[in-house]
């Protein structure tokens, strides 16, 4: 199941684990990424916490935790080659989050609602 947030992140749910990335819209707005910093495995995150950092030539931006949970995996490939985010934002997951409450994900945006949001 695919869910979205108003902060332009996507979540791909597999049971109670969500892979988290940024949307095409976010990647387009940020421009070519030159640096990605990921959370440490085992980090407990609350919804809205800074989970990761992405940087373009011009500026640094935060990637937020979309829900409460614990980081179980990170995608080191993005650290080694940040351009992967621009070439395939929907495929470039940043980290996997074991959700504290799986049911919270039901309240996030579905794809149609997210498309409406960005116009």
């Amino acid at each position: 199941m695919l869910k979205f947030t108003a902060e332009h992140e996507w979540l791909k749910l597999d049971g109670d684990v969500a892979a988290v990335g940024i949307t095409q819209h976010a990647a387009d707005q940020l421009g070519d990424l030159v640096f990605v910093e990921l959370p440490e495995i085992g980090t407990e995150l609350a919804k809205g916490d800074n989970a990761a950092t992405v940087e373009s030539v011009k500026a640094a931006s935060d990637v937020y935790a979309p829900l409460d949970g614990e980081v179980t995996e990170v995608n080191q490939a993005l650290v080694d080659d940040p351009s992967l985010v621009n070439s395939d934002p929907q495929g470039a997951w940043f980290f996997k989050l074991k959700l504290k409450n799986r049911a919270d994900a039901d309240n996030l945006l579905d794809e149609a609602a997210y498309q409406d949001l960005i116009g």
Binding site: G31, D32, V34, S56, V57
Partner: peptide, 12 residues
């Protein structure tokens, strides 16, 4: 203009 469609990195 802060950038054009090429983007800051490729413009540089």
């Amino acid at each position: 203009p802060v950038q054009y469609p090429l983007g800051v990195l490729k413009e540089h």
